Simulated assay, not measured.
Amino acid sequence: MKAILVEDEFKQLYIGDTEQPTISASDLLVKVKATALNRADLMQKQGNYPPPKGASPILGLEMSGVIEETGENVQGWRKGDRVFGLLPGGGYAEYVTIPADMAMPIPDSLSFEEAAAIPEVFLTAYLNMFQLGGLGKNQSVLIHAGASGVGTAAIQLAREAGARSIVTAGTDEKRDFCLSLGAETAIDYKAGPFESKVKEATHGTGVNLILDFIGAPYWEQNIRSLGVDGRLVLIGVMGGAKVSDVDLSQLLFKRIQVIGTALRSRTVEQKIDLTRRFSEFALPLFNQGRLQPVIDSVWSWKEVNEAHQYMEQNKNAGKIVLQVQ
């Protein structure tokens, strides 16, 4: 089969030949129609984020496509069904295998490109806001990088759960977009400290939950922005990983929980459970049009290097999708 491979010396991507995956008794073989970019792909390309043991070394953490073959123990799926789902790797290819219990049916109203934009960001947002972050109705969440793929998914999921969201974003266009998705407050993080704006938006109480991709530069402001019994879920450390002179007393005084998270390294069983919970909550909302994948742009997989450069320059608001042709 054809797949996007990494040229070792200069870390450029190219379409080459590789062995087609084989399925186990509980798997589906899917002919991929579309996949989507994630920052983990950029890191893996550079050799900084190896795939989990046993996973495909090919880039790509999500896909949409058509079932080509079902394992002998698979029930409820048949050849020709449209499916989408989360992957540990392998999405940048013509064919991929996925455990049948991790696949989800594509809502009739969505295209393959739209479906490919859902799994990684919506499952990440669902996991970190609800299962780990415990966000409930009438609670508040601060979402950093609000116009990112996970950010736009989190805004919508919070809205549908009856929670209030505050976001940070760096341009007027991105902030306006976040507000259009349902965020109640959008803060320009380039204009100065965000904590005062968070306190203003919450009438001085602070938020119940923070989703943070930035890490060290935001640590002190995050802690001050949380209310009593607040939770800080650390999804990434794009700004740095090391914090000095940490005042641990603030964690005790406000009973703050700090939660580190990673989706890719979770077990298949954990991902199946997450997929089931997410499907029960979200698929009806996608069918009703209340949830929508947010797509920045769609590229041919022949343009994968240009698409990666576009993400590296932080130009996207929403998902960057690759059509696998």
Rank of each mutant, 00 (worst) to 15 (best):
L211M: 11
S244D: 13
D27V: 13
S26P: 12
Q75I: 13
T22A: 15
A161F: 07
A154D: 05
A25D: 13
I210K: 05
F10Q: 15
L29N: 14
I143Y: 03
V83M: 05
K53F: 01
R78Q: 15
P217D: 06
K174F: 11
E184T: 11
G60A: 14
A117T: 04
T35C: 03
V207C: 09
Q323C: 14
G76N: 07
S109C: 11
K174Y: 09
R39T: 01
K197W: 04
V324D: 06
E200A: 08
E200T: 03
T124I: 07
I143F: 00
H308F: 11
K199Y: 05
Y189A: 09
S111G: 00
M311E: 07
M43H: 14
K79S: 15
K2E: 05
V298P: 14
P293Q: 14
Y218C: 08
G134I: 10
V228P: 14
G76Q: 12
E195K: 03
L179Y: 01
R290V: 00
M63G: 06
E269G: 08
Q46D: 15
D229Q: 12
E200C: 02
Q250R: 14
A36I: 02
S180L: 02
I106S: 02
G289D: 09
A40I: 04
T168Q: 11
Q75G: 03
V74T: 11
I4V: 14
G65P: 02
T267H: 02
E120Q: 01
Q325N: 12
G215P: 06
K53C: 01
A25T: 11
A55V: 05
G227W: 01
I166T: 08
G236S: 03
S165Y: 09
Q44S: 07
G151H: 01
G289E: 04
V66A: 03
S111L: 09
V233Q: 09
G151C: 05
Y14W: 13
Q12I: 06
I259F: 04
G90M: 10
K137I: 09
V167E: 04
P107I: 04
Y218G: 07
T205P: 07
E120W: 07
V141G: 08
V32K: 05
F122M: 12
M102I: 12
L59Q: 13
S26T: 10
P51G: 10
E173S: 05
E269R: 04
C178M: 07
N138I: 15
D296K: 01
F10A: 13
L179Q: 05
A116K: 02
L252F: 12
M43F: 06
